[in-house]
Design a protein around this nucleic acid. Sequence first.
DNA 1: GTGTGCATGTAAGGAGTTACATGATTGC
DNA 2: GCAATCATGTAACTCCTTACATGCACAC
Lengths: 179, 179
Amino acid sequence: MKLTPSAYLTLGMIRLGARSGYAIKKAADLSTRFFWPTSLAQVYPELARLVQAGLLTRTEDHQGARERFAYELTERGEAALEDWLRASHEAPTQFRDESVLRLFFADALAEQDQLALVRRLREQVRGVAAHTSGEIVPLAEALESSGGTRFPALVARLRADTYAFVEQWLEQLEADLEP
Amino acid sequence: MKLTPSAYLTLGMIRLGARSGYAIKKAADLSTRFFWPTSLAQVYPELARLVQAGLLTRTEDHQGARERFAYELTERGEAALEDWLRASHEAPTQFRDESVLRLFFADALAEQDQLALVRRLREQVRGVAAHTSGEIVPLAEALESSGGTRFPALVARLRADTYAFVEQWLEQLEADLEP
DNA sequence: GTGTGCATGTAAGGAGTTACATGATTGC
DNA sequence: GCAATCATGTAACTCCTTACATGCACAC
């Protein structure tokens, strides 16, 4: 039984304290979405598969008339997660960015339009950097001080710092392109 | 008629001098693959669509008994490419990286295993950085000095520098994690 | 009382990958 | 002679997204 990264995302989020499918999706949108997006239409079937496979338990946890299920890791589920974390597989990075694709082909433009393209790209990158350091890092740091999990904050900082670096790089490029 | 980024990739590669579907795919594997991967099973139908739409012409260009077709941009094709380059759409970046996902959940591991995970990740990143600066950048720079197209080289350098930055960041993290 | 958030799921469709299928040319 | 590269395409499948469908709880 081979599990996909999305399955491990599910297991990992439950290990970090998410109990419902909804909570997993919500947590993912604030953290892992940037390097592993997911959707509810993925989460629910995945939960069902993992229960089927004996890696999760599902118990009723209804709130009055509103239905809710609480998931927990079984021993085998915990072991599966840790095995995956320890494994040294080659995981090919998937990256798709239309903006960079445009930058790649920018020679087709007149100089002023090239400059405009770079400027737009830098502003996009600046926005991501600001959002990451302003919103995502603080959330992850709250988790760090409350729960003792440090890696979510590390990953958030890595992202913030990387985007800040790219922003500087593009700023320099912009300066070089200016007439 | 709305075109996908893959369509613009196709147009762009032809503008840079690729003539056959095979050549487009080959060029993409050495350049755009890192931010917009493609495959022959995408390229061929895309070429057919673009010919159909009047953005490309297709002419026979057989080499003896081996069949080959040469594609060229029509005026409308060139205009479509340039419009896309000038447009300022929000292009959501798609990024999927199982290694970062593992890093995110690394709190589940014992300290020595956390260190091993970071070390592996750094080595992966180092490999990418080395490949990019050693193989991809020189190729793009050759294009730059021969043909006057500078943006492919800029994009390659951006990638090389970014990965070098991430490698340093992880090196620092590794040092911090060491007992 | 109404909008936002919590909560669970299914169905249809799209985008992209791998595998299949075929064959010529070139360099060693 | 044989392997790698050039060259064109199709078919099946997988993964993921968007849209659909439904309803409770809580705060304002």
